[in-house]
Simulated assay, not measured.
Amino acid sequence: MIVHTLRFAFKDGTTEQQKDRVLAVMRRTAALESASFATVGQSLSGPADGFTHAYCVGIEDMAALERYMYDPVHLAGDPEILPHLARMAIGPDLADDMDPTLADRVMALHEEKAARYPEWAAQIEPLLVAG
């Protein structure tokens, strides 16, 4: 099982209606067949880190992760989500698979997606902060 986490904060001026829509789109992505479990909501890490919300999804294995990353629902959701985010931190992710190459394989899949969808990568890059 690969557990992917994302913490984020909305841009100033984002309305409650827009926030609700972003969270609904995230929940739609989290409900994909490739996701074993998920939760979307408030971040409990405390206000000092600057993140107000979080997304966590469990994905069975690398094959499911690839399906998840390229699912049309996921691909369609990011353009609705990303314009409303001020910042985000990916991870820490974790897995019960002890394969020492797993992190590199997950990163390679992410890099492949960034190369295939450079506009997506360009939207994500300025939002990232150290997790």
Rank of each mutant, 00 (worst) to 15 (best):
105 R>F: 14
33 E>I: 10
113 K>F: 14
103 A>N: 15
120 W>T: 08
78 D>G: 15
10 F>A: 05
26 M>A: 03
112 E>G: 14
78 D>K: 07
69 M>D: 03
106 V>A: 13
37 F>M: 13
48 A>S: 06
23 L>H: 05
23 L>F: 02
114 A>C: 15
1 M>S: 12
23 L>N: 00
119 E>N: 14
17 Q>E: 15
77 G>N: 12
101 T>K: 08
107 M>Y: 13
17 Q>W: 06
77 G>Q: 02
123 Q>G: 07
47 P>C: 08
57 V>H: 01
18 Q>G: 04
79 P>L: 05
128 L>S: 03
70 Y>Q: 08
27 R>K: 07
96 D>K: 06
45 S>K: 10
89 A>H: 08
67 R>A: 06
40 V>A: 00
50 G>Q: 03
120 W>M: 14
87 R>W: 12
26 M>P: 03
38 A>E: 03
33 E>V: 08
80 E>N: 03
39 T>V: 11
116 R>S: 08
123 Q>H: 07
125 E>W: 08
38 A>S: 10
18 Q>P: 07
107 M>P: 12
91 G>A: 11
96 D>V: 15
78 D>P: 15
40 V>I: 10
29 T>S: 11
102 L>V: 12
12 D>A: 14
120 W>I: 07
56 C>Y: 01
14 T>N: 11
29 T>P: 09
119 E>V: 14
26 M>F: 08
121 A>G: 09
126 P>M: 07
119 E>W: 01
25 V>I: 14
82 L>R: 10
88 M>V: 02
7 R>G: 14
70 Y>F: 13
2 I>L: 13
94 L>I: 14
7 R>Y: 11
89 A>K: 01
53 H>K: 03
44 L>E: 08
15 T>E: 03
76 A>N: 05
85 L>C: 02
19 K>Q: 09
68 Y>D: 02
37 F>T: 12
126 P>V: 10
28 R>H: 03
9 A>E: 12
18 Q>H: 08
31 A>W: 01
84 H>F: 13
61 D>A: 05
10 F>Q: 02
69 M>R: 02
107 M>E: 11
100 P>Y: 05
72 P>H: 00
43 S>G: 06
117 Y>N: 13
50 G>T: 04
83 P>G: 09
106 V>D: 10
42 Q>W: 04
102 L>H: 12
54 A>G: 01
8 F>Q: 07
113 K>T: 15
27 R>Q: 12
89 A>I: 04
123 Q>A: 10
75 L>T: 11
15 T>M: 11
97 D>S: 12
4 H>I: 04
102 L>D: 07
66 E>L: 09
102 L>P: 14
19 K>E: 11
56 C>A: 08
33 E>M: 06
127 L>C: 09
